[in-house]
Nucleic acid binder design. Structure first.
Length: 348
DNA sequence: TCTGGGGTCCTAGGACCC
DNA sequence: TCTGGGGTCCTAGGACCC
């Protein structure tokens, strides 16, 4: 009996939820994202497997998706529906004798001791399907990193085990962007250093990596490439570090007052959200994205932590005024950074 | 690829202090 | 006045993830 980590990842989760309540869509290319208008600004949240065959994936601009598959069904995001479905899945997982960490709407880690992790994985998949009609894939690993990568290799509806034993065989020849924490940018920078594969990164020089990626990130990249990860699976609720809202305008706006009003509105919403969660803001960060796509941020530290809407709005508008340039604006956002709860002294 | 909205963490550089 | 070194805090931006 050994300890294993399971990573449970729901298959095409958002699209699957939509198809469940619209059975006539089964088997069709379904694309969920934005307001559902594929001619408007927005990106794909999830595409069904049928739509993925057309080269549509998460993050694809909706307009691109429309061009690639004009016959796809385009649907608006419906967060409450996904939250409800996710909650039911997590309740199923909570029934297993394991430490459970919810890692997102459609994924979770389980840590448990067992002699047969594949049997547990089958049982997890069966329970989820029986209770929610949703399909899932399960990765098994010695740690969270391995389990997470294994679930991707298990898709769809499969089970895959990635361990220290087969890590090199399975991962060594893949490009570095196969790793968790290595995206396009880091992958390219690594390639520029002559590091193309996971095996090459695993054998890279720590000081070279530290020089290129910083004292923490550099050496960490190499541990990831070796399949090492000691972060614990924990069911403890994570304390939020920040709460924010942002809005991309359907068309770039050129009126300063319009952008400013939107900042005020977003700040009010964020303030209400913070108050509802019984948190308090220590700093307000305003973001402005100018056309075509250059982003600026400005932070204002609050004199004391607060939940006061007027104070948060005032800080946001002050940051906006300090930041604003007379150029077409694509997006504005407001984010409140939160103080640790035990340190908070709220002004009422 | 004309690029959402919700987040987290890390880095580099400047201010400030002794 | 041509000017060290170290620590800490803050800010803006970058990269990544779902």
């Amino acid at each position: 009996v050994s300890r294993f980590i399971l990573h449970v990842d729901l298959d095409e989760f958002i699209a699957a939820v939509e198809v469940l309540r619209r059975p006539e869509l089964r088997g069709r290319p379904v694309v969920v994202g934005g307001t559902g208008d594929p001619t408007a600004r927005g990106v794909v949240a999830t595409a069904s497997y049928e739509a993925r065959r057309f080269g549509i994936g998460s993050g694809t601009p909706l307009r691109t998706a429309l061009r690639k598959c004009p016959d796809a069904v385009f649907l608006a995001l419906d967060r409450p529906a996904y939250e409800a479905a996710s909650k039911r899945v997590m309740e199923v997982l909570a029934g297993f004798a394991a430490e459970l960490e919810v890692a997102g709407w459609d994924e979770a880690f389980l840590a448990l001791r067992t002699a047969d992790p594949e049997a547990v994985a089958r049982s997890v998949q069966h329970s989820i399907r029986a209770h929610t009609s949703l399909g899932s894939s399960v990765g098994i690993g010695d740690n969270k990193l391995q389990a997470k990568l294994a679930s991707a290799l298990a898709k769809p509806a499969g089970i895959f085990r990635l361990s220290h034993t087969n890590w090199s065989d399975v991962m060594g020849k893949r490009t570095t962007d196969a790793l968790w924490g290595v995206g396009r940018k880091r992958s390219r920078r690594l390639a520029a250093l002559g590091i193309e594969t996971v095996a090459e990164l695993a054998a890279a020089d720590d000081s070279l990596l530290a020089h290129a990626f910083g004292p923490s990130t550099g050496p960490w990249l190499r541990t990831v490439a070796r399949g090492e990860d000691d972060t614990p699976v924990t069911s403890a609720a994570r304390r939020p570090r920040s709460v924010g809202k942002e809005k991309t305008f359907p068309e770039d706006i050129t009126q300063r007052a319009t952008a400013r009003d939107e900042v005020r509105r977003l700040a009010g919403e964020v303030a209400a959200e913070i108050a509802e969660q019984r948190l308090a803001s220590a700093r307000v960060v305003v973001k402005v994205r100018y056309a075509p796509f250059s982003t600026r941020t400005r932070a204002v530290a609050l004199r004391r932590c607060t939940v006061e809407q007027l104070e948060i709005e005032g800080a946001a508008l002050g940051a906006f005024d300090a930041l604003y340039e007379d150029r077409p604006v694509r997006l504005v956002g407001v984010r409140c950074e939160l103080k640790r709860l035990e340190d908070v002294s709220v002004i009422h």
